Simulated assay, not measured.
Amino acid sequence: MANMYLIIAAFITAIVLGRIIIPNILIISLRKRLFDAPDARKIHKRPIPRLGGVTFFPVILCTTCFFTALRILLGYLPDPQFTVTMVTELLFLIAGLTLLYVVGIADDLMGVRYRKKFFVQIISAAFFPLAGLYINNFYGLFGIYEIPTFVGIPLTMLLAVFITNAINLIDGIDGLASSLSMVALTILGVIFIHNQQWIYALLAFVCVGILIPFFSYNVFGNADRGRKIFMGDTGSLTLGYILSFFVIKYSMYTGSIPTEEILGSPLLVSFSVLLVPSLDVVRVVLRRARNGKALFLPDKTHIHHKFLDMGFSPRQALITIQLMSASLCAFTLVTVHSGWNNTLVFVIDVVVWTGLNLWFDVVIKNRMNK
């Protein structure tokens, strides 16, 4: 129970620190005119400060380290899983976050070419296998169980870069990336609590804590009064990298139970919380490849752009996309834990997503023809 109290205290501390720091970031941004200027691709119509994500990494690092040290002093360590491996994983996570934090700030302040950002993401993704973290089992998904290391390591790096960019690319309307991340982090945090992996649970809920004050300023802040802020690449890269870490950590098979006897695929379960941003990236990339366009240059073809083209307001689009994400996640979690075939569940998710997007395209076409 003491571990739960510490997690709650860390969660509240992150909220308080965010509530203190974000207004000061706003003041600095306004004085130095560090804005995200509107253009043809963006939704906002006036310059908005874009350094909200600068608060994420320092608050997450400070709060997590403080309460982890406090747990040690109070005698609640070691965890059953607290080993040299866990320490190594967390240190490599911090190293990767530091690289992405620096690149994110540089991009938000003066812009960084996507090739350079991609290169740094690959380096950061390589830290996971160095820490001993990699996808080593599919748990029967597509009929695949154990996979060799030479396949698992590059797959893990690809997955980390993919998730990091998925969160970065879904950050197109107020509150979308932060709210999807909050839900995903909360579910993953509950899973880690259930598994008594207290350090990871604490990290997950600290991330949720810092997102709450940001979400308030991002969604409900008044731009005319200088109370609105975006997370920028600094924030989205931080969130994406942490989420990729959790997905890989939870998906890695380390137990003694035969994988054929495990109910549900941990890989599919962990991905269920990120189905909307993940499937949206796949759809957009395939569409760009089919049309012969650059795969990594920004455009207006993401799911939130579709909702805006259908006549939804940004707030309505946010709520509807959240409901879509929650429905897909709930369906996946319930069915895999009810004994459904993992591959069948995944195929249903993809078919439903594809069907919805085809329907959206028809609605947009009919609206434009009126």
Rank of each mutant, 00 (worst) to 15 (best):
Y101G: 06
I27G: 01
I25Y: 05
K42S: 05
L97I: 06
L26W: 12
L61H: 01
M110L: 11
L30E: 06
V103F: 09
C62V: 09
R50S: 15
Y76L: 14
P58S: 04
G75W: 08
D108R: 12
V59D: 05
R41D: 15
F66T: 06
A95E: 05
L17M: 12
L97M: 14
L17F: 12
T85D: 04
I25T: 02
C62D: 00
I27V: 14
M110A: 09
P80I: 02
R19L: 10
S29I: 07
P47V: 14
T83S: 14
R113F: 09
D108H: 05
G111D: 15
F35R: 03
A95V: 13
L30T: 09
L91E: 01
D39F: 11
I28A: 07
D39V: 08
R19C: 05
P23T: 03
R115T: 12
P78D: 04
R115S: 11
K117M: 13
I25D: 02
I20S: 15
F82R: 14
P78R: 03
L34N: 03
K42D: 00
L61T: 01
V59R: 02
D79S: 08
L77I: 10
T88R: 09
L70G: 11
R41P: 11
I43A: 10
S29T: 02
I94D: 01
A95C: 11
K117H: 09
K45H: 09
C62G: 00
L34I: 06
K116Y: 12
A69N: 02
P80W: 02
K32R: 11
I20A: 12
Y114G: 05
T63Q: 15
T68C: 09
L34F: 06
M110H: 13
S29E: 03
I27N: 10
S29A: 11
P38L: 07
G96F: 04
R31K: 13
R71W: 13
R46Y: 15
I105M: 13
G53R: 10
V103D: 08
F57R: 00
V87N: 09
C65Q: 05
A40R: 04
G75Y: 06
R46V: 14
A37Y: 05
Y101C: 08
F82V: 14
D39P: 03
T98G: 15
R113C: 08
R33C: 01
D108G: 13
I94P: 10
L51Y: 04
R19D: 08
L26G: 11
